[in-house]
Design a protein around this nucleic acid. Structure first.
Lengths: 340, 340
DNA sequence: TTGTACGCGTTATCAG
DNA sequence: CTGATAACGCGTACAA
């Protein structure tokens, strides 16, 4: 106890000091520390004791220099998401990555990839400062770092629209999620199910639209009217009004995100329609306001922490040369509240 | 252009290669790289050109090993806040720290200080892996890392209740914030201002209570009734009911956080009282739901990004031996909405 | 199974 | 102002 405290106070001992204390060579200590198998048990014992008594901690820099590995991985967050953390999306992913990495020997260094330092970021990544990188790109098809994967182990969070050749990706399954959302509507008895889709130049936009169609198809129903919005509340409001004009018999509505669903709720209220009795509504994302609006919104929640976790384990596997799925898709979770 | 790309492809060149190409010694290159003043201009020129042509990037590990500095700082987030990032508080602080550090030569490594790895975290911090650390502790008086400051440059985000000797701290000024919130109520014409306080074993709890009293005192008003809650919505609901019993003439209400304010809103509604006409309500924190509830809540917004930023610059100053204020207090911002 | 010796890329000391 | 050269702490062929 006292010894250890003392050791710390004096500064971290070196591998060499451990060696002399254990009565072996530095090489042997190194072997023990790195779990090399070919060491006599007694030696292992003696070394470990010395390590304990001295409070030895390997010097990261020296180790990195000698082994040419860093035991560090970078989390790159494109500035496009400056508001990043305001967005629970990113916040949760970061949390997932951080906690998962905490159980490994890897260290997490955060990089905000802003305009003025994009080059700096690249240099950092390529400069041998990390063993690999996680790049999370929001809905936007940001591919500033697309080519990075050829030089450094990289795992991407979220897929851009165009398929990236040979890139390792972890993403949420928007097709499946939307499909299940709509299936919930069907299960509720809805037969005329309309959609407010998202922009068709973003992956989630097209995928969720696909899911809507897919579910309807599988149930043998014909898709109701569809209007494309831009993920904003206003567009949702406008879209819902238009939808009601197009087909007054609509009894179910799938909105590609909660913002638009919220707008739609207002339109339905204006039209004197009751939710969910006249029209059932389901959104997507489980945004922060979704549980507090009237009526509370049924929606799909994205497994963001799990995504972070998956990103981390996948990257570590990649770095360590273990086989890795090129694409991992995560399932969203249906959250049933009052609107459907 | 092509040279540079080629250089990258071949792997990062070493300082030595730059030296031979520039026709000087490694020592000189090192001096130039580190902005050492005593180098002949022509030499500087020549070295810089070589660096540029070769696409040289200093090796972090080697530099760290030789200089005994890491150019890295740790951000320690106690697991107590496992939900951490769900909490916009932490998310924004992290963002502030990350972006600010991005403009320096320091790297940010994130540590989640969980139970099972508290020792590991300490070892990491003490093991010479970072030049300094930022420890953010939420409302809770977590002082697991209180003593760290004596061994390593550390800046704390948020003050524990008991004063920490010699610790460098950045915090929000809750007394001032609460005072200004109440002053807003007074300015609105309220004369019987009650309070729903937070737990008195947390710093924000006592400080906000203090601010409430202070503002009243300065305005020559006598404090209305007070009930202590636990920062939950339910406690706010109960507290407000009790308050109304204690003094039906209350025309202003200060809640120590938005959760409790939200509960209070419900109690007032039940009592048939109109907000803000009968009773004006102001909360604290500007929680995510505060703008969407009915009526939208007037509240104090904490400058969390600024706090992160301040934490970063303070730590860097500390590390580099520049003078530093032991305590930095940040002002909250009054956000006026419909409730007051 | 263990030890020797060299190298990793920089910084820093000290002559020159 | 500049150039040798010795650390820095560790990994690892190679030899024993």
């Amino acid at each position: 106890m006292a010894d250890k405290a003392e050791a710390v106070r004096r500064g971290i001992p070196t591998l060499e000091e451990v060696a002399t204390r254990a009565g072996v060579s530095r090489a042997t200590v190194s072997r023990v520390v790195n779990g090399h198998p070919t060491v006599r048990p007694e030696a292992v014992e003696s070394v470990n004791r010395a390590i304990d008594e001295l409070g030895y901690v390997p010097n990261r820099a020296a180790r990195s220099l000698a082994s040419n590995r860093t035991q560090a991985i970078a989390l790159v967050v494109p500035e496009t998401a400056a508001r990043i953390f305001a967005d629970p999306f990113f916040a949760s992913v970061v949390q997932g990555v951080a906690t998962t990495l905490n159980d490994t020997d890897y260290t997490l260094t955060m990089l905000i990839g802003s305009e003025n330092n994009a080059a700096k970021t690249r240099r950092y990544l390529l400069g041998g400062n990390v063993d690999g990188a996680i790049v999370i790109s929001h809905h936007t098809g940001d591919h500033s770092y697309k080519d990075l994967g050829q030089v450094l182990p990289v795992v991407f969070g979220g897929r851009p629209l165009g398929d990236s050749p040979g890139a390792v990706v972890v993403d949420v399954d928007n097709v499946d999620g939307a499909s299940r959302a709509v299936t919930h509507l069907i299960g509720r008895g809805c037969r005329h199910i309309a959609a407010i889709s998202g922009p068709q130049d973003m992956r989630p936009g097209v995928d969720r639209r696909l899911g809507w169609q897919e579910a309807l198809l599988m149930a043998g129903l014909t898709p109701g009217p569809e209007v494309v919005g831009d993920f904003s509340t206003e567009s949702g409001l406008a879209a819902a009004r238009r939808l009601l004009e197009l087909d007054p018999t609509v009894d179910g509505l799938f909105a590609a995100n909660d913002q638009m669903a919220m707008g739609a709720l207002q339109a339905l209220r204006e039209a004197g329609l009751h939710v969910p009795d006249d029209v059932a509504v389901v959104g997507y994302d489980d945004s922060f306001f979704s549980s507090t609006i009237e009526p509370p919104l049924t929606t799909m929640r994205q497994p963001m922490i799990a995504m972070g976790s998956e990103l981390a384990t996948t990257l570590v596997a990649l770095i360590e040369g273990r086989p890795v799925d090129p694409v991992t898709l995560l399932r969203a979770k249906l959250v049933v509240r009052a609107s459907a």
